[in-house]
Amino acid sequence: MAEKSASPEEQRGMKLIAEAEKKAGSGKSGGFWSKFAGGGSSKIDEAIDLFCQAANQFKMAKNWSQAGYAFSQAAGLNLQSDNKNEAASKYIDASVCYKKIDANQAIECLKKAVEIQTEMGRFSMAAKQHITIAEIYESELQNIDQAIVHYERAADYYQGEESQSHAAKCLQKVAHYAAEKEDYMKAIQIFEQIANRNAENAMLKYSAKEYFFKAALCHLCVDPLNAQHALTRYEETFPSFQDTREYGLLKKVLGCMEDSNVDGFTEAVREYDSISRIDQWTTQLLLRAKRTLGEADLT
């Protein structure tokens, strides 16, 4: 089978890369006088521009591998010139290209951007890259353990910058995955932390019920008595929780678990779901709680 011929954009891209590599090489070997006169720096800047032009040609041709390579080369030269902001930016551009064909390569570029941004003290920006890495592990590589690691790192950076709302979004992902992996105590700790913080904030108070509810569901999977004690604490911390449908469901299923009432458990869930559709994560935890009664489904 004949090899596919290069498109006009790819041909232009390859010429630009060859020119960029030549400029970069002459910039590196210019010696003392070249650097003293600014010649080396100028050659490097020209090489960076040519690599970026090449990357854009390859993007038009949808040759993502070469586009990623060209942006990575531009990033490396920016780093050599101590232009750290641009270096991080070009590594991110490279990651966007690589993500279309090679998730691991995209992650490597993002990690380089993170290294630069943390060195510069740009922790909020580094947190964004950790989120993107986590999302790639989730959707492309199905590696939930690594996704959790990077959501936690993002949350740490956001908390260090006092960006609590962004940190909470990352921690929610961690808690959801922890519960799915049956690490209930970790999930409970995070959900309760978010719920307590929201309960003290007039603007976020309404959302506190969601996190108290999720924490209680995790308790249900550990032990009904744990769940009852937790509900008592939540009532004291957030009295209006008792007026919610989520609280009503928890009280009903708790009562059914104490009485080994399988039919009552099923009916309580069915009644709740008829008004407020139960999502997959909540369904999964309710199923696990119901299995303690010897039942494997919610119907």
Score class of each variant (00 low, 15 high):
114 V>Y: 02
58 F>T: 09
92 I>Y: 10
79 L>A: 15
69 Y>C: 01
92 I>W: 07
89 S>M: 12
102 D>I: 01
111 K>C: 03
50 L>W: 03
98 Y>T: 01
96 V>T: 08
92 I>L: 12
66 Q>M: 11
98 Y>G: 00
77 L>I: 00
52 C>T: 07
86 E>H: 11
95 S>T: 09
51 F>K: 05
68 G>K: 08
107 I>C: 05
68 G>D: 10
88 A>M: 08
97 C>F: 00
110 L>A: 08
76 G>W: 07
79 L>C: 10
79 L>M: 12
61 A>F: 00
72 S>Q: 14
88 A>Q: 09
61 A>L: 05
73 Q>M: 14
71 F>S: 07
113 A>F: 02
55 A>P: 06
103 A>V: 03
112 K>V: 03
107 I>V: 10
55 A>H: 07
66 Q>K: 12
78 N>F: 11
51 F>Y: 15
99 K>E: 14
112 K>D: 11
52 C>R: 14
72 S>G: 14
55 A>F: 03
88 A>Y: 06
99 K>S: 15
102 D>G: 01
66 Q>S: 12
70 A>V: 05
108 E>P: 00
72 S>L: 03
69 Y>Q: 10
97 C>V: 05
62 K>Q: 13
58 F>I: 08
66 Q>F: 05
82 D>A: 12
109 C>V: 04
99 K>Q: 13
81 S>K: 15
99 K>N: 12
51 F>Q: 06
57 Q>C: 12
100 K>E: 15
78 N>V: 07
75 A>Y: 00
59 K>A: 11
56 N>T: 11
60 M>N: 14
100 K>D: 10
117 Q>Y: 03
102 D>L: 05
114 V>E: 12
55 A>I: 04
72 S>A: 14
114 V>P: 04
103 A>T: 09
98 Y>P: 01
